[in-house]
Amino acid sequence: MQDGDPQLLADGLGDLARVKGISQVARDAGLGRESLYKALSSSGNPELATVLEVISALGLQLHASPAVGPEKAA
Score class of each variant (00 low, 15 high):
Ser42Thr: 07
Asp11Val: 01
Gln7Met: 15
Val54Cys: 02
Gly30Asp: 08
Gly4His: 11
Gln2Val: 12
Asp3Arg: 15
Leu8Lys: 11
Glu47His: 07
Ala74Gly: 14
Asp28Val: 04
Val54Thr: 10
Leu13Gln: 03
Leu16Met: 08
Leu36Arg: 09
Gly30Glu: 11
Val54Glu: 02
Ile55Gly: 04
Gly4Asn: 08
Ser41Pro: 07
Pro70Trp: 03
Leu16Phe: 00
His63Gln: 14
Leu40Ala: 03
Gln24Phe: 00
Ala73Thr: 13
Ala73Lys: 13
Ser42Asp: 09
Pro6Gly: 06
Pro46Phe: 09
Val25Gly: 10
Gly59Pro: 11
Leu60Arg: 10
Leu13Trp: 09
Asp5Gln: 10
Leu9Glu: 01
Ala29Ile: 08
Ser35Pro: 00
Arg33Glu: 11
Gly59Phe: 08
Ser41Ala: 12
Gly32Cys: 12
Gly12Asn: 13
Leu60Met: 13
Gln61Arg: 14
Leu13Met: 10
Arg33Ile: 03
Gln7Cys: 07
Asp28Ala: 15
Tyr37Phe: 12
Leu58His: 05
Gly12Val: 04
Ser23Pro: 00
Pro66Gly: 08
Val54Ile: 13
Leu40Asp: 03
Ser23Ile: 01
Ala67Pro: 00
Arg27Cys: 00
Leu13Ser: 02
Pro46Asn: 03
Ala29Gly: 08
Ser56Leu: 11
Ala39Gln: 12
Gly21Gln: 01
Leu36Trp: 07
Asp15Ala: 08
Leu40Phe: 01
Pro6Lys: 12
Ala26Gln: 11
Ala57Lys: 05
Ser42Asn: 08
Ala57Asn: 08
Leu31Gln: 10
Val68Ser: 15
Val51Thr: 01
Lys38Thr: 13
Glu53Phe: 07
Ser43Cys: 00
Ile22Trp: 03
Gly4Ile: 02
Val25Thr: 14
Leu62Asp: 07
Leu48His: 03
Leu48Thr: 12
Ile22Ser: 07
Arg18Phe: 02
Gly59Thr: 05
Gly30Cys: 08
Gln24Tyr: 00
Ala49Trp: 09
Met1Leu: 08
Asp15Phe: 04
Lys72Pro: 00
Ile55Phe: 03
Ala64Thr: 14
Gln2Cys: 06
Pro6Cys: 09
Val19Glu: 14
Arg33Cys: 00
Val54Ala: 05
Ser41Gln: 05
Ala73Asp: 13
Asn45Cys: 04
Arg33Val: 06
Ile55Ser: 08
Val68Phe: 14
Lys72Gly: 00
His63Val: 15
Ser65Tyr: 03
Leu13Asp: 03
Pro6Ile: 09
Ala74Asn: 13
Ala10Gly: 00
Val54Asp: 07
Gly32Gln: 13
Ala74Gln: 15
Leu36Thr: 02
Gly12Tyr: 11
Pro46Met: 10
Ala10Glu: 01
Gln61Met: 04
